[in-house]
């Protein structure tokens, strides 16, 4: 305990000494107290944060997580630019404004940029990161590329640091590579807390903090996005009961499904 306090104090001194780091005192919180406390008040504004979807099926959930972060960083009124590679639309579908609205992001505050390849994504991202008036930029390249290296991410970080625009590098179908991002997350969908009659509940994510500039250890969080309050909260660990798909019609009591989230959560035998 003593040690962490020391480190915290030292870190504050460092921030004061290094003007380049001054921007990082400006943070946005997740809204979940425990997580924010661990992050020292949230994530840095005016920086690049990487969010990885480990595989294509996890992409929509990761995009939801990014949307949440965007709203935390930019607020409900901030203007957002979302840069996608055109063929991402074949994989995950088109960004659906009605769905964004129901996540809490007003579609009129969003500008979507669709470009051909990763170099164009980076070009557009740099252009957007240099625009002070934006709340946040989502940069969504698809797959790996040699162009997305340390230099490119550092250039983005610098531009974001100068303007205070927060960038989210949302990466699908790619593994972590060296980058200048402030934090790196890996996100996949997590079973939701069921509502009445076994309906899917609020968007839930399994977010792993893979890397943190200030040296925080890897941690895994189960978070839930609350659209009404525009905040993340820890997903309460409920007793995982599998809901049969047709209880309302059959009227039968739902048995615990072997394939259900309870089973997957506990780890499958064999």
């Amino acid at each position: 305990m003593d040690r962490t306090e020391h480190i915290h104090a030292l870190r504050q001194v460092l921030t004061r000494l290094d003007p380049g780091q001054a921007g990082t005192t400006n943070r946005f919180a997740f809204g979940e107290a425990a997580l924010d406390a661990q992050l020292g008040g949230g994530l840095a504004r005016g920086a690049i944060h990487e969010v990885f979807a480990p595989a294509t099926p996890a992409a929509p959930a990761a995009a939801g997580f990014v949307t949440g972060l965007v709203l935390r960083a930019a607020g409900a009124k901030g203007h957002v630019v979302w840069i996608r590679q055109r063929h991402a639309q074949d994989e995950t579908g088109k960004l659906y404004p009605q769905g964004l609205a129901e996540m809490g992001l007003a579609p009129e505050n969003l500008t979507l940029v669709l470009v051909k390849d990763i170099t164009d994504v980076l070009r557009a991202a740099l252009e957007a990161a240099r625009c002070k008036a934006l709340g946040a930029v989502v940069i969504e390249p698809w797959g790996r590329s040699k162009h997305l290296d340390m230099t490119a991410t550092r250039r983005l970080s610098l531009a974001a640091g100068e303007t205070g625009v927060t960038g989210f590098l949302f990466r699908v179908a790619a593994g972590p590579e060296p980058s200048a991002a402030a934090t790196r997350w890996q996100v996949r969908g997590y079973p939701t807390r069921p509502l009445a009659a076994g309906a899917p509940g609020f968007p839930a994510f399994e977010a792993t903090l893979l890397r943190h500039r200030e040296g925080l250890a890897q941690t895994l969080w189960h978070l839930e996005w609350n659209r009404d309050a525009l905040r993340f909260s820890a997903r309460p660990e409920t007793v995982e009961t599998g809901f049969a798909p047709v209880p309302a019609l059959s009227g039968a009591v739902a048995p615990l499904l072997l394939d259900g989230p309870a089973a997957s959560h506990l780890g499958r035998a064999g």
Partner: peptide
């Protein structure tokens, strides 16, 4: 919860 999907 959101009743419309994020991607269509």
């Amino acid at each position: 919860p959101p009743l419309r999907p994020l991607f269509l």
